[in-house]
Amino acid sequence: MTGKHPELGLMTCRKAGDPPFQEAATCSDMSLAASRQGADLAVFYPEAVQNDGTVHPAYLLNRDGTWSARTILLPRVVLERTFCSQAEEKTVLRQARSFLRRQGTIVLSGRVGGKLAVFRCLSLADSLKPHLPSTELFHPKGVVRRLSEQRAVFLKPDGGSKGEGCIRILRSASEYFTAEGRDRQNQPFRKSFSQLRELLVWLSLFMKGRRYLVQDYLQLTGKKGSPFDLRALVQKDLHGRWALTGIAVRQGEQGGMTANLHGGGKALSAQEWLTEEFGSARTIRLLHQVEKMADQIPLLLEESFGRLVELGLDFGVEPDGRLWFLEANSRPGRASFRSIGDADASSLSTSRPVSYALQLTRRMPLPTDRIAPIPLFQSDREKQENGVSFRRIM
């Protein structure tokens, strides 16, 4: 620690354990990235934001890799990486985010809309239309039509992530229906139905009122039958310009449906894997297409959804080499690059958001009413020696 008051915060969700917050590895990497740039980064969860203008507790990384709890003033810029699932958590998050902004803190919490909103936004660009699979809100008629015409259909939550809740339905020659995918706990399942009506009743119960999308089913598997996709990570650099950090292949288990790492997938070198599957000439074309779309998509999404910091863009490739855009994630992981040994992309993936956020802090006017931070766990004697009292900032 440098002993300076942290100008940069990282807000994530609370969890049981030590340290008591999500994505400890990412938080550690971003804290180290800030340190290399001469700054400190404080990690905290929404419940820690106090209405007296402090964050209590905030966690700062020590040199030995452990975390120390402190009470600090509100950071000037906050990077938000929250994955809240409970309604109460989401309420507290909204309150914390609103309070921070009212106090003048820049909260980089850019989120894109649901998957359907993203597809509608991107479909306005003629160059992207050929790469967008047919997508619509769930209606039984859409499922029935695709099963009749294509003998397959794909369903996914409009607001889901990590492959959770996705369903693939296949219609066999003997008119049986098979539904397979991942449930809300992201566990794999497989069910068979002898009648279409039985399938539709089960679907209604599975979705439980959740907003779902229906898409044409795409054959996004490699030669050995393993599902795969391409993850392109795009991030803003310290000048606020979008830059491609890296591309990796994510390969799922053979016979599975999704390639997400949370669903048991693994990361592989995009150049090597695609060359083995499609040959060097087609691989060059595919990567060039991904790079062009990765230049265009962030700008379009920012126009519709406001300021963003980073995006994970997922692409699928059919056996004939046709490239499809699958979805955009504004809370992308970065473990793929570490897994494939891409040290440059791995380092950039944590340093770029930090560099961008720190550049914003340096453009802000210095506050005139800052007070010294007090460690969260202090003795009464230390408090008396410091002689510091908190002032309410509203």
Rank of each mutant, 00 (worst) to 15 (best):
M1A: 14
M1G: 15
T2K: 11
G3H: 06
K4D: 14
P6S: 07
E7F: 02
L8A: 06
G9L: 00
G9Q: 01
G17C: 10
T26K: 05
T26W: 01
T26N: 03
S31I: 00
A34R: 01
A34H: 02
L41F: 08
A42R: 04
A42E: 04
A42L: 03
E47P: 04
Q50F: 03
Q50G: 03
D52C: 13
G53N: 10
T54H: 00
H56S: 14
A58Y: 02
Y59R: 08
L60E: 05
L61P: 07
W67T: 04
S68G: 08
T71W: 01
P75L: 00
R81W: 02
T82R: 07
C84E: 07
E89V: 00
S98L: 08
F99K: 05
F99Q: 10
V107C: 06
L108M: 12
S123K: 12
L124P: 03
L124E: 15
D126A: 14
S134G: 11
P140Q: 05
R145C: 11
R146P: 13
P157C: 13
G165L: 01
R171E: 07
G181R: 00
G181W: 00
Q185N: 14
Q185M: 10
F189D: 10
F193C: 06
L199P: 00
L200G: 10
V201H: 13
L205Q: 15
L205I: 07
L205E: 15
F206D: 04
G209Y: 09
G222Q: 02
S226A: 15
R231P: 05
K236D: 11
H239T: 11
Q254D: 01
A259R: 05
K266H: 15
K266C: 12
E272F: 08
T283G: 04
L286K: 05
K292S: 15
P298R: 04
E302Q: 15
E302A: 14
G312E: 01
V317W: 07
W324S: 10
S330I: 03
R331E: 12
P332C: 01
R334C: 02
F337Y: 11
R338E: 14
S339P: 01
I340S: 05
S347M: 10
S347D: 13
R352I: 03
R352D: 04
M364Y: 10
T368V: 03
I371A: 14
A372L: 08
P375F: 04
E385Q: 12
